[in-house]
């Protein structure tokens, strides 16, 4: 397999900072353990991939504290996420733990992991286009989001809002499939 310069993934600064934070953590095994907890609405993504899992900490008495942040203000999945993390901690034998929600800094799609972006596409959801790709406003483009099914760029926006707050609805002019686009925010 040959590789070229275009194979080198371009990642956002925000993502690079998240990754560094995880890599410098005192409790790497806890991060790894929570990789199995997925987003209830897009189960292809782990909470880590989605950027919802912000931080975790184990104190000297063994108490685990996990911080998560909601995607959108009204995200109804946040309490399910909290429950899912708690069950995973319980399953791993922890009995002293707490899952806290924090609002700042505000969640952004720049926190999606490169792996998460790939998984979204495989799941049939187009990942957010990055502002570097000529989408300066950051809002959903009207045309040209790459179709996750056939990779055509000949696509059009059907609706600004899709099945959940985080998605918009598109249709491909080549394969004619409708697909969700994970909005940049």
């Amino acid at each position: 397999m040959t590789s070229s310069i275009s194979d080198i993934p371009v990642v956002s600064n925000a993502w690079a900072e998240r990754l560094q934070h995880r890599q410098q953590s005192q409790v790497p095994e806890l991060w790894d353990m929570l990789d199995v907890v997925n987003d209830p609405e897009v189960p292809a993504l782990s909470l880590w991939d989605l950027g919802v899992l912000c931080d975790l900490h184990k104190d000297e008495y063994g108490k685990v504290t996990v911080w998560i942040t909601p995607t959108y203000s009204g995200c109804p999945a946040i309490s399910t996420m909290q429950d899912d993390i708690e069950s995973e901690l319980a399953r791993a034998g922890f009995n002293d733990y707490e899952v806290k929600t924090k609002l700042a800094p505000a969640w952004t799609t720049d926190w999606l992991s490169p792996e998460g972006r790939r998984k979204l596409r495989e799941y049939g959801i187009a990942p957010p286009t990055q502002s570097a790709c000529g989408n300066a406003s950051g809002l959903t483009p009207e045309f040209g989001v790459e179709c996750p099914h056939c990779s055509s760029s000949d696509t059009k926006r059907l609706s600004e809002f899709g099945s959940t707050a985080c998605k918009a609805l598109f249709q491909c002019n080549d394969c004619h499939e409708a697909f969700d686009y994970f909005k940049q925010i």
Partner: peptide, 20 residues
């Protein structure tokens, strides 16, 4: 249908603010 969904998403954003 799309507009119905869009309005509910907007409603949800405001509900989320109310909760905060």
């Amino acid at each position: 249908l799309e507009e119905d969904l869009a309005l509910q998403n907007v409603a949800l954003d405001f509900l989320g603010r109310a909760r905060m």
